[in-house]
Each structure stands twice: as structure tokens, then as C-alpha cells.
Write a protein that binds this DNA or RNA. Structure first.
Length: 491
RNA sequence: GGCCCCUUGGUCAAGCGGUCAAGACACCGCCCUUUCACGGCGGUAACGGGGGUUCGAGUCCCCCAGGGGUCACCA
């Protein structure tokens, strides 16, 4: 009997694209599982598809994982005792096991060309039969085989698959899932270019890397019996499996580029915080049973159980992610937010060495109203740039009646007269003046807001004024007065 | 099409034989308020269908339907 002494899990993406949120969630579940029981989280790059794998993609995936804080214990850049952690560097290992299977007559060379096989497959399809490889190369004589091999005829290696009985996948999320052996054929384990196929490489690597729990996306469930055949042929003990359901787009289809942002980096660039994305992803398919929306990562680790992972596919909802991000952003340390905004702010000329303090004050005012970092740049422009136009409806309402000029002039006076330019005292002055003028405070507040920001909605006006400073306020009120003058002339 | 997985409001999701079927997002009201957010209160909205088992079924079993996955010298 084989006992697992060490808990080891892995995330094994193929570097043929970006790290999308489905992959990120799979990585997260692996990571949480490992952390929750003191296991090891391994990262392995499955890059045996030489044509589609790219270094850029690999770097992007690594970067995405790091950004999320899902650091791996072993893997690229980290090392470990079971490397290399890139399949493209493990050819000698696969060859060793390939030769073992060949020597034990558990696998055989197949010389059928892709074209031949395609024809057989098409025929089977047309006849509405299930296609299974005929197995004709299995019966090749040794001499014939040697002849073809030495003639350099391209060959793949197939594994001899049992055709009776059944395989039971022990899945920690789904329970036992049975597959009948009769459905499987002698599938290819090594391509004619000498590289192993996925199902072979995965099984060999998971064994060699002493993986105890294979936690991966549901799309791999149907592949699992094939991998089990490899395990069995090689005499490897089986790991435990856990197949996590997929994340679907709002139209219930598989996530793809046409669904907008799907990759971790896109979300980063859109101004989402890693904590928020992680929290959202965790709740999309996992529940502790408690009624908690916001999870500190440490609590997640404490509470995480594979049994709490959902079996049904989940449709992701960017609205909820955004809502959640808004909460994280509102509570984030202002200095940290500043760091996150810094680059873009400098590019826009909003931030330089002399106005850091001002910039921080603006963030403090705006950050709890933004749902994403990107929104900050849409919401705070008037703090850094001249007001170039006024909200149309606002102008109609506050700049376009007989009292408008008088009110604006009054405002200028109030502002000039305000001794200490602090939110409290400004507010006091405003309310006083409104009273003496027999107006509502709003009658003064709204035109001021529009004058200072060009908008009808902003953070609290008096806080805003304090941050802007007296000088800027007066200047903008004067600009508004000019604007109203012109408006009157043209009427 | 074969095989496999899945099915509670629009979305996420609690529930594990007895509940008026939680909660969150979204949506709609109201309150707070200088606007916008936030917050508070309230509301609309669900067990895919059909058979069983049981005193009793969202919960167990079977069938159907729908959705998803997979059937490559891709991973």
C-alpha cells in the first residue's frame, strides 16, 4: 500500500497564451490547498508544444501569478529537488520511461501517417461509428519494425491500453467517476518528433515531482483515465484528483478574447487590485459555508477545503468584481494607492516632484468613490487640468438664469473673505451667506461645484475647495463669470 | 454523435429529509445628504421537467431536457 506522506500540488499551465481568470482560480485553489495543510505548491510549465509555446507567454503567466501573490515553492526561478520545471527540459526523463514501456512491451511504434489516420477517423465519423485506432502496428513483426525504423520512417509511440474493465477516478470534488476501458484506444504517448504527448508527460511529471493531489480544471477530467493508464503501465501509484469546474463567460460559453477582459494582466491594467481579484475568484466556486463576502487571505487559507469547491460551472460577473474592487480600493492605504497611480499620473503631467502632497490629498478625496484605479483618472482630472467645459445640464441649470452672475460674484466674495481656507470654515461662510441672502445653501453650492470642476458631481465641495486652495478657486469662479458673460451676450 | 460532469432568483451562492428556501452583486423604492459615491431600511426575483422512495424531498433514486467538457502526433 502506498501512503502519501507529503502533500504536494502543482499548477501546470502551458505557455501558449495569457493567464486567464480560470487558470488563476485553479492556481489559487492549489495554492490555498497547499497553504491550508502545509503542503508544497509547485509550478510547472507545460511547453511540449514547441510551435505554440512562447517565452513571452511564460513570463506573462509568471508575472500574473506573482502579481496575485500566488508564489510557488518550487518551479521556474525558484528551483527545487524535482526539476527541471519546464517540460521542454525533461526530454531525457520522458525517454527513459518511454524506453521502459517499449522494453516491457507495454508500448509500441506506430508508423501510420497522420493522413492515414485522418481518413480512418473520417470514415468512422461518416459511418457514425466511434473511432478507435485499429491497432494494426501493434502486430508488426520485429524485423519489419526494425526495417521501417532504420529506413527513417516517421513513427509515434502508442501505449497498449486495456480494452476491458473500467477505471475509477477518485475525485475529491466529484466523488468517484467511472470510465469504461472499452472506450479508449492505444493512444499516442510520443509524437514522431520525439516529444511526449500531454497525457504521457503529465503522468510522468506528476509522479516524478511526487504530486499527491492533482487539482485542475474540469476540462481535464476526461483525460484522466488516459493518464491513469500511463500510471498503471509504469507501476506508479495514483495521486488523488480534484477537478474544478470551469469559469464561463456571461453567455455561458467558454471564456475567450471576445468576452472582454479575461486575463489577469488585463484586469491589472484596468485598475483592479490583486486582493480584490483574488477574493472574487475565490468566491466564484468556493464557499466556506459562512456568510462572508470579504476574505483576508489568511482566513481563506484557514477555511479552505476542497469539499467546499463547487461542482457546477460558474459564470463570472464583472459587475460584482468591480463592486468588490471598489471596497478594496476605498480601504487601501492612500500612500499605496499613490504608488499604483504614479506612473500614469506622471505621464499625464498630473504628478511631479513638487506636488506630491497635493496629489495625495486628491487621492484621499477621490479614492473611496472609484471602483477601479483607472476611474481615478476620469474622476480627478479637474484637480490637475483647467476646466475646459461645463456639464451641459449643469450649465443650463446653474449658469443660465438671471441670478447666475450675481451668485458667482457673491461666491467670489465669500471665498476671498474666508480667513482660514479650511473645509469647516468655508462651509460656515457659505451657509451664513445663504441665510443672509435668503437662499438655500444648495443655491450657492451647486454653481460653485460646477465652476470649480465643470461637473455636477464631485467629492464633498468644501473638502474639495480646501484641497484646491483659495487661489485656484477664485480663478475658476472668475472663469465661470467670463463664461456666463459670454453666454448672456449670445442670448 | 459516444463518453463524462453539472442544474436553487439575471449572476455568485447557503442548504446536506421537516426552514415563511439565507446572504451578496445587479435592479427598483425610501432614508441620509451640497452633488456623486458610501451607508441604512425595504422590495421584485429561484429549487429545469416528469416519475418514484418517504408521514414528509431543493435535499435520496430513476428517466428526460438543457448547459458545459472531452473525444488531435494541442495542452
Amino acid at each position: 500500500m502506498f501512503y502519501l506522506t507529503d502533500i504536494r500540488v502543482r499548477f501546470a499551465p502551458s505557455p501558449t497564451g495569457t493567464l486567464h481568470i480560470g487558470g488563476a482560480r485553479t492556481a489559487l485553489f492549489n495554492w490555498l490547498f497547499a497553504k491550508s495543510i502545509g503542503g508544497v505548491f509547485v509550478l510547472r510549465l507545460e511547453d511540449t508544444d514547441l510551435l505554440r509555446s512562447t517565452e513571452d507567454s511564460a513570463q506573462g503567466i509568471l508575472e500574473g501569478l506573482k502579481w496575485l501573490g500566488l508564489e510557488w515553492d518550487e518551479g521556474p526561478g525558484k528551483g527545487g529537488n524535482y526539476g527541471p520545471y519546464q517540460q521542454s527540459k525533461r526530454l531525457h526523463i520522458y525517454n527513459e520511461y518511454l524506453e521502459k514501456l517499449l522494453a516491457e512491451n507495454k508500448a509500441y511504434y506506430c508508423f501510420c501517417s497522420p493522413d492515414e489516420l485522418k481518413i480512418e477517423r473520417d470514415n468512422a465519423m461518416q459511418a457514425k461509428r466511434d473511432y478507435k485506432y485499429s491497432g494494426k502496428c501493434k502486430c508488426l513483426s520485429d524485423s519489419k519494425k526494425a526495417e521501417l525504423l532504420s529506413a527513417g520512417k516517421p513513427a509515434v509511440i502508442r501505449i497498449k491500453a486495456p480494452d476491458e474493465g473500467k477505471l475509477i477516478v477518485q475525485d475529491l470534488i466529484r466523488g468517484n467517476v467511472e470510465f469504461s476501458n472499452s472506450l479508449l484506444d492505444d493512444f499516442i504517448i510520443a509524437k514522431s518528433d520525439g516529444w511526449p504527448t500531454y497525457n504521457f508527460a503529465v503522468a510522468v511529471d506528476d509522479y516524478c515531482m511526487k504530486i499527491s493531489h492533482v487539482i485542475r480544471a474540469e476540462e481535464h477530467l476526461s483525460n484522466t483515465p488516459k493518464q491513469m493508464i500511463v500510471y498503471n503501465a509504469l507501476g506508479f501509484p495514483l495521486p488523488l484528483f480534484a477537478h474544478v469546474s470551469m469559469i464561463l463567460a456571461p453567455d455561458r460559453s467558454k471564456l475567450s478574447k471576445r468576452h472582454g477582459a479575461t486575463s489577469v494582466q488585463e484586469f491589472r491594467d484596468l485598475g483592479y487590485l490583486p486582493e480584490a481579484l483574488l477574493n472574487y475568484l475565490a468566491l466564484l466556486g468556493w464557499s466556506s459555508g459562512e456568510d462572508i463576502d470579504f476574505w483576508a487571505i489568511d482566513d481563506m487559507i484557514k477555511q479552505f477545503k476542497l469539499a467546499g469547491v463547487s461542482r457546477s460551472p460558474a459564470i463570472y460577473d464583472i459587475g460584482k468584481l468591480t463592486w468588490m474592487n471598489g471596497h478594496y480600493l476605498a480601504e487601501e492605504n492612500t500612500e499605496k494607492v499613490m504608488v499604483l497611480l504614479e506612473n500614469e499620473a506622471k505621464i499625464r503631467g498630473w504628478l511631479n516632484d513638487n506636488n506630491r502632497e497635493y496629489f495625495v490629498k486628491v487621492i484621499r478625496l477621490v479614492q473611496n468613490r472609484c471602483k477601479t484605479l483607472l476611474e481615478f483618472f476620469n474622476m480627478a482630472d479637474y484637480f490637475f487640468e483647467e476646466v475646459s467645459s461645463y456639464d451641459e445640464k449643469g450649465a443650463k441649470k446653474y449658469f443660465n438664469h438671471e441670478n447666475s452672475l450675481k451668485i458667482l460674484n457673491d461666491l467670489n466674495e465669500i471665498i476671498k473673505d474666508t480667513g482660514e481656507f479650511k473645509a469647516d470654515s468655508i462651509e460656515n461662510d457659505f451657509r451664513h451667506r445663504a441665510e443672509t441672502l435668503n437662499m438655500k445653501a444648495g443655491d450657492l453650492i451647486h454653481p460653485t461645484r460646477l465652476s470649480l470642476s465643470g461637473r455636477t458631481s464631485t467629492p464633498g465641495l468644501f473638502e474639495l475647495m480646501e484641497v484646491m486652495g483659495k487661489e485656484m478657486c477664485i480663478k475658476r469662479i472668475n472663469n465661470a463669470i467670463d463664461y456666463v458673460h459670454k453666454l448672456n451676450l449670445s442670448n
